[in-house]
């Protein structure tokens, strides 16, 4: 974990989370599927957490492949 904490990718559905995970795995970008943090939402959804240092590469990898609802810093 870096000083800036973590970034999380929010999606509209679990299927999109799984699709994004596949893309990030292929691109060898470190990440973890976690429940959406309480401070962001009370939904029992899942999201993808990653190191903010990877932000540009993550955004680039997902561009045109998976629709990201939001990227939050936690």
């Amino acid at each position: 974990m870096t000083a800036a904490g973590w970034c999380v990718l929010l999606f509209d559905s679990v299927s999109q989370v799984l699709l994004a995970e596949k893309v990030l795995k292929q691109a060898a970008l470190g990440h973890k599927v976690i429940p959406v943090p309480r401070q962001i939402s009370s939904d029992c959804g899942v999201c993808i957490r990653f190191d903010p240092a990877l932000r540009d590469r993550v955004v680039e990898a997902l561009a045109g492949k998976v629709e990201v609802r939001e990227i939050c810093v936690v």
Binding site: V14, V17, L18, V33, I34, P35, V46
Partner: peptide
């Protein structure tokens, strides 16, 4: 099962 695997990962993380 696909959903179940995601939930399990999420659970163990928490």
């Amino acid at each position: 099962d696909e959903l179940g695997r995601v939930l399990m990962r999420s659970f163990l993380h928490t």
